[in-house]
């Protein structure tokens, strides 16, 4: 662990981690409620996952195995940097395999592989307040949450149907947690929303710049907002993954040349690699 002498395990000091754990416990106790916490300066800029890193640092133990994904991929700059950060500051094992990880920090995706009760999923959250674009005053959004007064978000969804014929919002699609608090699931595609509900894993959300932590405890009902006659629905991609042939996973569009060539591949790189490996075995 050369180069990290003088640093505490997982970078944050123990007092800070305790403070964050208290916030996490409160968040777990009140599912979907945004708990304020004293977010620290981290050695990377806001927007790069400072909230998720502080949560991860506070729940990480020496025997944990960490996986970090950005848009489903383990090999993008953000994921690589954060994974290396914890390998150096905590000395924990890291992996790209969803099934092997005990803590998964994610930006903008939920893994395709079903999670288990032994895992914690940590989301990086840019804007934790689902009502922020509708109501700029923080005091008022807090009052709306306290009173469960969520009509204004329904108006937003009404507008989509009126103008576009359907609810157009395709990511950061608002949910109601445990029949009470409205919550932003972070900018995951709405394709992932059903995975939030009744999930065996603990789901923690950290927003560093906005200084908020919230949580979905294991096996909590999470409902995507909708109308009775326009129920929540996910768009199936329609085409199979060009690499593994999966027809049910979330796909990214990859531009392959400058002549208009493109292909659709699984956004979850681990899921795709697993399927390709299995296919290789079968052949």
């Amino acid at each position: 662990m050369s180069g990290t002498e003088g640093y505490n395990f997982a970078y944050l000091d123990e007092q800070t981690k305790r403070m964050i754990r208290r916030a996490i416990l409160k968040a777990v106790a009140v599912p979907g409620y945004q708990v304020p916490f004293a977010s620290r300066e981290m050695p990377l800029p806001y927007g790069w996952g400072t909230g998720g890193i502080q949560v991860t640092a506070s729940v990480l133990g020496a025997d944990d195995t960490l996986k970090v994904i950005d848009q489903g991929a383990d090999d993008t700059t953000n994921a690589v940097s954060i994974r290396r950060f914890f390998a150096r500051t905590a000395g924990v094992a890291t992996t790209t395999r969803t099934a092997e990880a005990t803590v998964i920090q994610t930006r903008h995706r939920v893994p395709e592989t079903p999670l288990t009760g032994d895992q914690i999923l940590v989301y990086q959250v840019p804007i934790p307040e689902p009502l922020r674009w509708l109501e700029p005053r923080e005091a008022e959004t807090r009052a709306l949450h306290a009173l469960g007064d969520y009509g204004v978000m329904q108006v937003e969804l009404y507008e989509d149907i009126a103008i576009h014929g359907k609810i157009k919002r395709s990511y950061d699609y608002p949910v109601e947690v445990a029949d009470r608090y409205m919550m932003s699931p972070s900018p995951i595609p709405k394709f992932d929303n059903p995975k939030l509900s009744d999930c065996p894993a603990l789901q923690l959300f950290g927003a560093g710049r906005e200084k908020r932590i919230y949580a979905i405890p294991p096996h909590t009902p999470v409902r995507s907002l909708d109308f009775e006659d326009h129920p929540f629905d996910i768009d199936h991609p329609g085409t199979p993954c060009a690499l593994c042939g999966d027809t049910e996973s979330f796909l990214d569009e990859i531009v392959t040349d400058d002549k208009g060539g493109r292909m659709f591949v699984c956004s979850d790189t681990d899921h795709c690699a697993e399927r390709q490996a299995e296919a290789g075995h079968d052949a």
Binding site: V152, Q154, V155, Y158, I161, A162, I163, F227, E228, D229
Partner: peptide, 27 residues
């Protein structure tokens, strides 16, 4: 009024705030 919201959304807001969740009936 909510100026960024359509006429229909403006009229429907009180209904939705009071729990109406059927788009067709609100409209």
């Amino acid at each position: 009024l909510r100026l960024a919201v359509t006429a229909g959304g403006n009229v429907g807001e009180r209904l939705m705030a009071d729990g109406a969740r059927h788009y067709g009936r609100i409209r």
